[in-house]
Each structure stands twice: as C-alpha cells, then as structure tokens.
Simulated scan of single mutants.
Amino acid sequence: MTIKAIAPADARRAVEAGALLVDIREADEHARENIPGAVNVPLSRIGDVAALGRPLVFHCRSGMRTAANAEALKAAAAGSPCHLLEGGIDGWRTAGLPTAVDRKQPLEIMRQVQISAGSLTLIGIALGFLVHPGFFGLAAFVGAGLTFAGTTGWCGMALLLRRMPWNRALQAG
C-alpha cells in the first residue's frame, strides 16, 4: 500500500492536530524557503526521522520527490501514519498557506548549477560563432558534464559551487 497524498488544507489540519511535517529537501532548499514548523530531514538522511508515534506528513518542493520515494518514506515512518503533501511546498503556497522565505540565503545549489551550466553553454556557443570555433568545446564540455552528472549522480559543478563564498554559510549549517 502506498502513502496517500493529502491536500495542503488537510495537511495543515493534520499538523495542527499534532502531525509532524517533514521537509525532505536538502538543507539549502529548506533554508531559502520553508513551511514554518517543518522539520528538515533530507531524503539522504530519512532514516533519522523520529516519529515517536506521531503521524507524519512528508513534503518536497513539488511533490515529485516524495511520490518517487514513497516506499522509503513509509519505511522511515516505522509504522506511524504518514501522508505526502500534495504539490509539496509549491502546493502549500498556492493554497495561500504561509511559508517563511529568507531571500538572504543563496539560491539552491541545483538552481545555481542550472544557471551556471546554461550561461557557460550560451557563452561557448556565442564565442564559437563570434571569436573562434574552438569555443564550441566549452558548450560540449558543459553538456558532457551534465550528462555525467545525470547518469552517475555526481556533479562536480555542484561541489564547486558549494565552496563559493556566497554558499559558505550552508557549509557551517
């Protein structure tokens, strides 16, 4: 039996009745925007959830991550009743429910990767046409890196971006 998804309003009622809201996104995502009162337990550490017999409501950004990992989340609940927040934090916000946003936090690492990779690709293509065809190699290198990251789960650009000065607060947390 899979975990049932519940609407944001129902999730809010469950939390008000004592359910624990568990944000399975990574720490950088949670720091930028979160649902007040949600506990951040990234998917990679989901076994650390301590339900203590309380019902659980799991959420991610859009609901895709929780749905894809429903069996692991159910196992982490260790017999406690559990649900998935339909639409994730995006659905919660769309339903007019409050979120805490900290714009001082850097963008999520994966968004930084997407911006960097897209920019480097466009720069490589533009320089390839305008300066020298050898610059097309930059676009090819970035494309190969993204392909490698997608197939292996290891992203060198994400590791590099985590070490940038604007992300240092995330390393300490």
Score class of each variant (00 low, 15 high):
Val15Lys: 01
Leu120Pro: 01
Val39His: 12
His59Ile: 10
Gly53Val: 13
Leu97Gly: 10
Thr99Gly: 05
Leu85Thr: 02
Val39Glu: 11
Leu73Ala: 03
Phe58Glu: 07
Ile125Ala: 04
Ile24Ala: 06
Cys82His: 04
Ala76Asp: 10
Asp48Ser: 14
Gly153Met: 12
Ala27Leu: 11
Gly79Met: 09
Met64Glu: 14
Val15Phe: 07
Arg168Thr: 09
Trp166Asp: 01
Leu20His: 01
Leu21Ala: 06
Arg163Asp: 02
Gly134Glu: 02
His132Thr: 02
His30Val: 00
Ala5Lys: 09
Leu146Gln: 11
Ala139Thr: 11
Arg45Asn: 13
Ser44Gln: 13
Ile46Phe: 08
Gly124Met: 02
Ala149Asn: 09
Arg12Phe: 01
Met1Ala: 13
Leu84Cys: 03
Ala126Gly: 09
Gln171Asp: 09
Val101Asp: 11
Ala72Gly: 00
Ala17Tyr: 04
Thr94Ala: 15
Arg45Val: 10
Val49Asn: 08
Pro98Ser: 13
Arg163Glu: 04
Leu160Pro: 03
His30Ser: 03
Ala117Asp: 08
Ala95Gly: 10
Asn69Cys: 04
Val113Tyr: 03
Asp10Leu: 11
Arg25Val: 04
Leu21His: 00
Leu56Thr: 02
Arg61Ala: 15
Ala14Thr: 00
Glu26Trp: 11
Val41Gln: 02
Trp166Pro: 00
Ala78Thr: 01
Ala172Tyr: 03
Gln171Tyr: 06
Asp10Gly: 05
Ala9Asn: 14
Lys74Glu: 14
Lys4Glu: 14
Leu122Ser: 05
Ala51Val: 05
Arg65Gln: 09
Gly145Cys: 07
Val101Cys: 08
Cys60Ile: 05
Ala31Ser: 05
Ile123Gly: 01
Ala78Leu: 08
Ala7Phe: 11
Ala17His: 11
Ile46Asn: 08
Gly87Tyr: 05
Asp102Asn: 15
Cys60Glu: 03
Pro165Cys: 09
Met64His: 11
Leu170Tyr: 06
Ala149Arg: 09
Leu56Asp: 06
Leu56His: 10
Gly53Tyr: 11
Glu86Ile: 07
Leu122Glu: 07
His30Ile: 02
Ala7Asn: 12
Val41Cys: 05
Gln112Asp: 08
Cys60Ser: 04
Val22Ile: 15
Gly156Gln: 14
Asn40Val: 10
Ile89Asn: 00
Pro36Thr: 12
Leu160Ala: 14
Glu33Pro: 01
Glu86Asn: 07
Arg103Thr: 15
Ser80Asn: 07
Glu29Phe: 02
Gly63Arg: 05
Ala76Arg: 00
Pro81His: 05
Leu130Glu: 06
Glu86Thr: 04
Asn34Thr: 10
Gly134Thr: 07
Ile6Val: 12
Ser119Arg: 14
Arg162Gly: 03
Gly153Ile: 07
Arg61Phe: 10
Arg13Pro: 00
Asn40Arg: 12
His30Lys: 01
